[in-house]
């Protein structure tokens, strides 16, 4: 399944409540993702919490957008990506 980088902007900053409330929010996002076969791998959040860079696996860019919409999350840009790490060509 292709992997995507999803950039989002939160003008008022992204706030995830701590504790059970936050857990519930994240769980409901995961449940909604699974409807369309979309998997949230993880995210990087800017220090001012206004931008996030999220890594997703999903069948298509549209599925990522629809899921974002169901979860009430904005989407600025979607880029298809692949993994490159320092040891990608390491042999042995």
């Amino acid at each position: 399944m292709p992997r995507y980088l999803v950039e989002r902007t939160f003008p008022d900053g992204l706030v995830v409540a701590p504790g059970p409330e936050g857990r519930k929010t994240l769980m409901s996002i995961i449940a909604c993702n699974s409807d369309r076969n979309v998997t949230w791998v993880h995210s990087y959040v800017s220090l001012d919490q206004r931008k996030t860079f999220c890594i997703y696996d999903g069948p298509s860019p549209e599925s990522v957008r629809l899921t974002a919409r169901s979860n009430g999350l904005p989407v600025d840009r979607i880029t298809e990506i692949s993994v490159l790490d320092p040891y990608a060509y390491h042999v042995g």
Binding site: S60, P61, E62, R77, I78, E80
Partner: peptide, 13 residues
């Protein structure tokens, strides 16, 4: 329609 939308958005593929 789907192709037009994806292209206008600049989405992958």
């Amino acid at each position: 329609t789907a192709a037009t939308l994806r292209a206008r958005r600049g989405d992958p593929r």
